[in-house]
Simulated scan of single mutants.
Amino acid sequence: MNRVLRPAGVQLVRGYSSDPAVGAFLPARKTIAAAQKAGVSVGDYLDAFSAEPGSTAGTVAAMLRLGQLDGSVDRVCEIGAGSGRYMTRVMDALQPGAYEVYETAPDWVRYLRQIRPQVIIRPANGHSLDATTSESVDLVHAHKVFVYLPFVVSFGYLAEMARVVRPGGVVAFDVITEDCLNDVVTKTWLDEPSRANIYQLTPRAWVVEFLARRGLELAGSEFVPLSDGRTELLVFRTR
C-alpha cells in the first residue's frame, strides 16, 4: 500500500492501538526528512508547520513557570510524545531521574529511543496510563494531543493524569477551549472546514471542575499557538 501511495507523499503507519479513534498523525520518516531538507531540527520544523517559530520553547517555559517546576523533579510522564520536541526541552530543563512516555506510533517510538535512549517507553493503548503507578510522578503532561482526540478519550486521560500525579505534583495539557475562539479563528474554520474539522473543542469550566473534584487546582493558563488558531495551556497542581 505504501508503494502505491508514495508518489502522493502519503505513508501509512501502524499504531500500537487498534482503536479507530487512535491513529498516527504525522509519519516520522517523512517529517524527519522534511526537517533535514529544510536544515532545521524536527522540533523547529513542526513549530513552523503546525504553529509558529518558538512555540514549543514558549509552551514549555510557560508550563514550568505556571507549575513552579524546577530541577527537583524526580519523575515525569508524557502522553503522546511524538517527535520529542517537548520531551527534550523538559528533560534538559528539569533533569528528571526518570521520564516515561506513552506513544502509539511505532515509528516515533523508534525515533524517541534514538534521540533519548534513557526514556522509559510504556505500552500505549491510546486510552490509559496503565503501566504507571498511582501517585508516582511529579509532572504528567501532554501537548497538541487532546486537540485532536475525541472528547471521551481526552476525558479518560484526564482521569488517568489525576491518578498518577503525586501529592504536590503538576498536571499540564493544552486544549481548544471556548476562550480560544474569536471571529478570526471561526472565520478561518468556516472558510476551510476540511482543515478545521480535525480539531476538538473541550469545555474549560467542566475540565477545571472535574479535576478539582480529584484534588487538582488550576495554577494558571496561557494561550499557545496552533495552526489556524490557538490552544489554551492549563496547568494544575495537586493540593
Rank of each mutant, 00 (worst) to 15 (best):
V170W: 01
P106G: 05
T56S: 12
R116K: 14
T59R: 06
E222A: 10
K144M: 11
G156A: 09
P20E: 12
R122L: 00
T188E: 15
E217F: 03
P106L: 04
S221A: 15
R122H: 01
G67C: 11
T231V: 06
T231H: 00
L46N: 04
R195Y: 13
R163F: 05
S227I: 13
G39S: 10
G215T: 08
S154L: 08
R166C: 08
A81W: 02
D44Q: 13
E232W: 00
R204Q: 11
I115N: 03
R213A: 13
G220C: 08
G15Y: 00
N197A: 09
P150A: 11
Y99R: 02
E135W: 04
H141W: 04
T88L: 09
D19S: 15
D174W: 05
D130I: 02
G67W: 01
V207C: 09
G97A: 08
Y99F: 07
K37C: 13
L12K: 02
D228V: 05
I121W: 02
T186P: 13
G9D: 12
N197R: 10
I120T: 07
E217L: 02
Q114K: 07
F223A: 13
Y148Q: 03
D191W: 01
H143I: 12
A131W: 04
G229D: 14
G43C: 03
D70I: 02
L139E: 02
R89V: 06
V170T: 14
Y199C: 06
V235H: 07
T133Q: 10
T31G: 03
